[in-house]
Amino acid sequence: MSAVITANGLSKQYKSSLALDNVSFQIEPGRIVGLIGPNGAGKTTALKAILGLTDFSGQLNVLGFDPRKQRDQLMGEVCFIADVAVLPRWIKVSQAVDFVANVHPRFDRTKCEAFLARTKLQPDQRVRQMSKGMIVQLHLALVMAIDAKLLILDEPTLGLDILYRKQFYQNLLEDYFDENKTIIVTTHQVEEIEHILTDLMFIRDGRIVLDADMDTVGERFIEVMVNADKADAARQLKPLDERQVFGKSIFLFDGVSRAVLEQFGEVRRPSISDLFVATMKGTYA
């Protein structure tokens, strides 16, 4: 199957800063891609370019469409949740369902109503009377009922409590995702999505600094807990990062073979947040 998104030399210049700097990447169908980066790294700009919400230079193909010129057709195949506060405050649950059902050809009303039945949302309830968590439930129910090929989530769980956050990703995995769909998600709560991702992309200062699937990430990046006596030897291998815990040093290596590292101590797979912190060192300095 051909790629869902193909980006070639994507650049976007804002007045004073370069939000995207000659970015190229490819996303295959059936993947869940985490696009992770510090604030202001260009995540949202990249998503806006994919959605045709902003102009850019370079080549971008999303599901066979050019988002700049064919946005209206593209949006029939793509859904997005931008962040918690974007549903209009005046709309009622029933109106939102009616409206989307009548303007979106791929919307399945019974599915949406089934999702809503599992929540406390009432048909007459207005968005302005809902908590942030309920707004996201409504938005998710609308989006999951749309049979889209690509779902884009930009900080979808920002400001939600842990119950809503867990439920959000659980619903997405159990009731929505399948091999024909592709999900791109950006978030700062990396730990919560790490087990659902199939691919990882780190973006920093408008450039992609890491683009790999999770298996590759597991092979490339290894964490070793080293006793103080062997620490100097380990440093010779140029670790990405080093931190101290209980008198031992924990080193993070990129592309050093597991056999070599096992001589220094206990090896394990690093968490994405540790990997992220190590990769982004000095971003705000």
């Binding site: 919400l53 931008a82 974007v86 303007v103 938005h139």
Partner: peptide
Amino acid sequence: RSILFWKSLP
């Protein structure tokens, strides 16, 4: 910012 919701529809 509800424009982002309207613009997510075809």
